[in-house]
Design a protein around this nucleic acid. Sequence first.
DNA 1: GTACTTGCAAACACTTTGCTAGTAA
DNA 2: TTACTAGCAAAGTGTTTGCAAGTAC
Lengths: 147, 147
Amino acid sequence: MDHWDAMEVLKDVNLRATPQRIAVLNVLKMLGQAHPTAEEIYVALKQEFPAISFATVYNTLKSFLDAGLLHELRFGDKASRYDLNTQAHHHLLCEVCGDLIDIYLPEVDVAQVLREHEFAMSGYHVEIRGVCKTCREHTLHKADTHL
Amino acid sequence: MDHWDAMEVLKDVNLRATPQRIAVLNVLKMLGQAHPTAEEIYVALKQEFPAISFATVYNTLKSFLDAGLLHELRFGDKASRYDLNTQAHHHLLCEVCGDLIDIYLPEVDVAQVLREHEFAMSGYHVEIRGVCKTCREHTLHKADTHL
DNA sequence: GTACTTGCAAACACTTTGCTAGTAA
DNA sequence: TTACTAGCAAAGTGTTTGCAAGTAC
């Protein structure tokens, strides 16, 4: 990943390398594990492109989704989050702070259920809900004050 | 499940047994595996309660969610789907017809990843995407016509 | 009787679309 | 040059909320 070139990535999937698209890719690359929402991407781009609009962000993300460059993650909250990580991976979702953490799990045994339902799987995703380390510590501290 | 009594269910979770709530529960029970959206529930209720509003449907569903009577499922498409099935189960999602199928999987081994991230899990959900039996057959038939 | 619920309309948040000027190839 | 893209504004979709009238308990 040391030789990441947004322009190349775009050419590889036959998308025009506009400055905005390059910037969106770089923002996603930089924010990495932060799984930004469209708004967060918009804010990040606003510095370099004061005239950028939400339409461009959404159009760009849609192009990238269609091209398979990223994944869209939708959870309990409203806004979609976008994930450039194309490796097979899963997520921890903190129900307190809303944070999303990439995890890697041993393969889940789905063969039986696919056979049963004659279902042609294209992929699967495991979402683990709960409370992250940071929020647990905060909760414990708050609880302490009540002792 | 032969002795399902919506009124009892509501009393058990300290919710007032209004006719609309009872009807929503019964609709969810009847539609079962269909995982209806708020709109589908609204349409189903409209017959019995011509004056019912979306606000009531959403308020009711929110009460039920808070009471733990059902689960909210959000996928690629826009509208949330509601699932009365409170057993631990997972879903097949057909990317062609959008159908959602309940499945039961052997436990996924998450202990390691939880330990690693010091994450307190409250639950997990596996979403398997792909093409269901019915849609696969349709696709095959269409493909046949091109031979 | 009281606190909660309904139904309406309006507001809301997120996303998409129609269009014109502009730009990558 | 030509087909695609950016940016704007407006519309669309799913969901939530404020409030007056009504109802479960």
